Simulated assay, not measured.
Amino acid sequence: MTAVAESITHELLSRATTVAVRPRYEGNNICTWIGFKHVNYLVEEAVLDHFRQSGLSSRRLFEEFGLGLDIVSIDTRILNAFHLDEVGFATVVPKIADGSDRLDFTVTITKEGGTTKDVTSKVTVALRKDTYIEPTDAYPSELERFVVAKIGGAEPGERVDVAANTALSEGRGTSAGDDPVLKQLTAGRNAFGWKWRIPYPYCHNNERLQMSGYLRQMEEVVDLFLADRGISIKTLLDDRRWIPVVPHSKIKFLDEALMEEDLYTIYTVEEIFKDFTYRSRMDTYVVRDGRLVQTSTGTITHGYAVIENRRDWKLVPFDQRVLEAFGRVNPS
């Protein structure tokens, strides 16, 4: 264990690492700009590579030590848009205080040839003891303070009635206003609710929804919310060449969400800033033993940009149609 211990104390907890990252083609949805989800994927890859360079790759942690590497909090600011094929250099700096049981890191990404930061992020990692396959305590003692038996530990909330309306035949779940849980969670709030069965491609370590799954969830609930309010992505794209842009997003785990559980995602418009950006909150819940358990919370800030040509865009203020769509409140 000596070599591993030295790697942990020096490489993982003390030394900064840098890796070249390039966004995936999948993230190129409008012209050649890369969406916020895939920028967060670059942050995730940089953190995973930091562990890899220290000699504690996510594969080794799981296979040898029975520890799942979970990003449990991510807070990312996009200062300049990423384009398809651009390369960034991501630097990960450990921010672990003496005696702390939190694996905290900062990540900055600067484009190749650039001199200013294009992305900044704060990330927290948990090492979750695997219990799906025979659990083990055969991991280095130096990791002990970072190991958790479970992520989070949210207290169960109100009792709720559950409707059986996420059958496989209904595909992507439901946003029906008569769903009792969605109705309870959105009543009197400027919110949109979506109930959905967690699929295995969004999970890892055999059972848990992972951070990239929550990022996909955040992207999709925004898409559904805008369509519900009559200003879908394609509607504004076709009508006026407007596209949503995201300068800031963050997600934090509060508990674990498990494969094939029904996930209740509530998207609430919180604040509009000077008619140029608006901030919304995403909260997710599961129902266990008839009680709500909140599994995550996060926020995302959006603006709109008008496409000037295949290369350039500029921010535009919200008009009345968009402001009215953001401002609707569901009746109690």
Rank of each mutant, 00 (worst) to 15 (best):
Y304G: 06
D98K: 14
R321K: 13
R281K: 14
L13M: 14
D178K: 09
G157V: 05
R310G: 13
D228L: 01
A305I: 02
V245R: 02
V316D: 04
G153C: 02
L209F: 07
T32R: 15
A187K: 06
R328C: 08
K117W: 08
D118L: 00
M259R: 06
S175G: 08
D262N: 15
A167R: 13
N190V: 01
E86K: 00
Q210H: 09
L215T: 00
A5C: 13
I109G: 03
R197D: 10
R240M: 08
I231Y: 03
K195Y: 03
T91I: 02
L237S: 09
F146W: 01
F318D: 00
Y264N: 07
R321T: 10
D319I: 01
S121G: 05
Y214M: 15
Y264W: 04
G230Y: 12
S121M: 02
T131L: 02
T268K: 12
T268P: 01
E270R: 13
T115S: 14
S7K: 13
T124V: 14
S7F: 03
S232P: 09
V322A: 09
M218N: 10
W33N: 08
V293D: 07
A167C: 10
G27C: 03
T186S: 08
E220R: 05
R15D: 08
Q210K: 09
W313Y: 12
L226D: 08
H50Y: 04
T91A: 06
T284P: 00
W242A: 05
T131Y: 02
G113A: 09
I307Q: 08
V125K: 00
T115L: 13
A257Y: 04
F276D: 07
S54Q: 04
D255N: 00
F225Q: 06
R310P: 03
D118P: 02
E219D: 11
T277V: 11
D179Y: 04
S296T: 14
N29D: 13
G27Q: 06
A191C: 05
A3R: 12
T108G: 06
D289K: 15
L237E: 12
L226A: 10
T268R: 13
K250G: 07
D137I: 05
R15F: 07
D85R: 03
T131N: 05
V87P: 01
K117Q: 12
D312N: 11
L13K: 10
L224F: 04
V162C: 09
L61K: 02
